[in-house]
Design a protein around this nucleic acid. Structure first.
Lengths: 179, 179
DNA sequence: CCATCAAGGTGGACATGTCAACCTTTTTCG
DNA sequence: CGAAAAAGGTTGACATGTCCACCTTGATGG
């Protein structure tokens, strides 16, 4: 504990039964969907970093970009950025770091002067060749941990949740008291 | 594009058919489980921040801690930290920030001098009272976006994936070439 | 009892992610 | 056409998350 503060009262306000908190009945954090997904996401990221670390210095965002390009979706900066689901800002810094470390080269984009083309160097192609099989094995490992039923509905469920996460319109019935 | 670099060759190495990338067939990012979950997690966090921002200055990690305490699970620092799933370091800084901004008070822990007790102030209790109903509505909104089948298997699936994300033992068959 | 080791908290350093301001290029539309 | 709006990239600032070294306290085993 930091060497100060800690004033007085515990159970100061709100007449809640001791041991039950402010919510009526017992509360189970494991039923909080966003919380569980956040925790899962963090674990998956740690697992991915562990795999990347076995083969080199690629960071997770760097790998995500290399993967999109390697897969041949596009060489246009914006298309790559959107496929990788990375913020403009982070994308700019990550790509330029990869140029400096020799993973990619850039070329002007003829059709749109604002964008540029990204091309993998041999170094990136070699890294992709080493990493892709391991990450594919991991994907199989993860899907194997699910029952067939779960495998079948996991992607639709993720997609449905992603759409539901886009708005806060459901609060229109519960307006902000400050308004 | 940064005003330098961009050397020569596109399709430099690896005999891949143009337009298909280094993987044989067409590759679908939407089937990459960790990627989809990471994207979903980011959207959920953004949604949560939008809700928190309607009612005050609480950050997402601050809210996670307050929620654990409000729910009455424990007042002991370590128990709270582990329930909230937050790193030691971040927990320390977040709690001390909440002390400074008057959301919690600390008290020495008699049974274990290394830990401390965390108690909510009226300010935190009021914030919890305002936010908890909205976040509960959001939870319902998210679950409503799922079919009954999906609702039933989403938590077990998350749990199974979380366990599968704990190891990289599945790579034992594909040892690191550098070893 | 004492020596060790584990557990807990703090702080520094850094990686990752988000937001906003800004400038350039492209697109839209009057 | 030309002005305004939109899209794209860069940068700074900051929030969040992770890792590590360190110190103190507690638990373990001789």
């Amino acid at each position: 504990m930091r060497d100060d503060d800690h004033t007085d009262g515990p159970d100061a306000a709100a007449g809640a039964a001791p041991g039950e908190g402010l919510d009526g009945a017992s509360f189970d954090l494991s039923l909080l969907l966003p919380f569980q997904i956040t925790q899962l996401s963090a674990r998956l990221a740690a697992q991915a970093r562990a795999i990347l670390a076995r083969h080199g210095e690629l960071s997770l965002p760097q790998w995500r970009i290399i993967r999109v390009v390697a897969v041949g979706l596009s060489n246009r900066s914006t298309a790559i950025r959107k496929s990788a689901g990375i913020d403009k800002s982070q994308f700019s810094r990550t790509v330029n770091a990869m140029v400096d470390s020799g993973y990619v080269t850039l070329a002007p984009c003829s059709e749109d002067q604002r964008q540029f083309e990204i091309h993998l160097t041999d170094k990136a192609i070699a890294a992709h060749a080493r990493l892709a099989p391991e990450l594919a094995a991991r994907q199989r490992h993860l899907l194997n941990a699910l029952t067939p039923d779960q495998r079948e509905m996991i992607f639709p469920a993720i997609h449905a949740l992603a759409r539901a996460a886009e708005t806060i319109d459901f609060l229109d019935n519960i307006p902000d008291p400050k308004d």
